[in-house]
Amino acid sequence: MRQRTKVLLVGAVAVACGVLGWGLVRPTGAAVPASTPAAASTPGQPPPTTPVAASPSAVAPPPVMPSPASVPGNVDAELEALATSLREKYGAKLHEPYLQIRMVEELMRFFQERFPDRWEQELLAFLKANFPEHYDALAAMLRNRVDYEKWVKDSESYLRGLTAEQRRSATWDARHRLFGKENAERIWVSERKNQAIADTLRTLGAQEGVSLEKKLSTYKERLQEVHGEQAAAYVERHQQELMNRFLDLPSVQTDLGGMTPAERSQSLRSVRKEMGLDAEALQRWDALDQSRDARWDAGAKYMAEREVLAKELSGEALEAKLVELRARYFGGEAETIGQEEAGGFLRFSRPRQWGRN
């Protein structure tokens, strides 16, 4: 009996040691699956954890296996593919601050999504492993970018109380302070150029007594000054946008509205030609202008008759007459226009934007 008790005790100790041994040698990083962070979580702050209650069962539950996304091999493969993609996309010109910050922002989105509680640590490790020759510059750019984001957030209420010009000045001061003046100017060079063009357009839009031709000439000269050798290529890539911004100017619309139909047609054609449109495109625009003119003429007649009917009729009798009237003037568009009017929108009561609608 004493011998049997001894055997049982030895067996129990062996089992206990086995359980403790498993607890010491099991992997430490693969027990808890990653949870998807909420879209509004703060970068760098760990998501809230849910406490796990002890199981009432005497039998311990089986260990939780890692999801495929958390398997180290899969993560390594994903990071390797990311590094390859970034080298192809940015590698040749990664000395440029503008491209450095673009890559850093791309990496911030990637690592904040996959490692919400330690994204910055993982991002720096990734840079160290894959871009060692640019590590110092990229790490500094990351720090500056994070600090700039914090400044924008902390200064939101202050900036709202400033004028547009004061807000722009304060923003540039912060950029110069955080990134250095030279880097900041190279990072936001497009913003500087766009602002210069916007300032010119604002001035032209308020000018009175200056011909449309002179305004267009000033606009083109400013585009050349701002974009230099790249001006022609820039205009070619942004023809429609540049034309629309010019035609939308209040002073330009006033000029066009004061012309005869023939003069207006010729002026619109000149604007488009000066912005680089070819002969085929100019013909298409001529045809579109004629179609728009015919529709607006029909709209003006419709609105005049509609006003007369509204004074004479009401309710169902008025609507029945308007259905006939819309069908006569607008054909296939009549039903759409009727639905717009039912919703309170009278499309032909709004001002005509010459060259735009």
Rank of each mutant, 00 (worst) to 15 (best):
R352N: 02
T49H: 06
E106C: 10
L86Y: 08
S85N: 13
E280I: 08
V146Q: 01
W354C: 01
R118Y: 06
R326F: 03
E191M: 07
E122S: 03
G276L: 08
L212V: 08
A31E: 13
A54V: 10
L24G: 09
Q339W: 05
E274C: 06
E133I: 02
R167S: 00
V104E: 01
K150C: 03
P62T: 12
N357S: 05
P37W: 05
M103L: 10
E185H: 05
E225N: 15
A300Q: 10
A58C: 06
T254I: 02
R295V: 12
P351T: 09
K311Q: 11
D147L: 13
F110G: 02
A129P: 03
G11A: 14
L94S: 03
Q45A: 10
S70F: 02
P62H: 08
H134Q: 09
P116G: 02
P27I: 06
D173V: 04
H227A: 10
A206H: 05
K93E: 14
L79S: 03
E229H: 12
R2E: 15
T200E: 15
V15A: 09
E213D: 14
R264A: 04
L124P: 01
A125V: 07
L325C: 05
D154F: 01
K150R: 12
W22S: 14
R186M: 02
P62S: 13
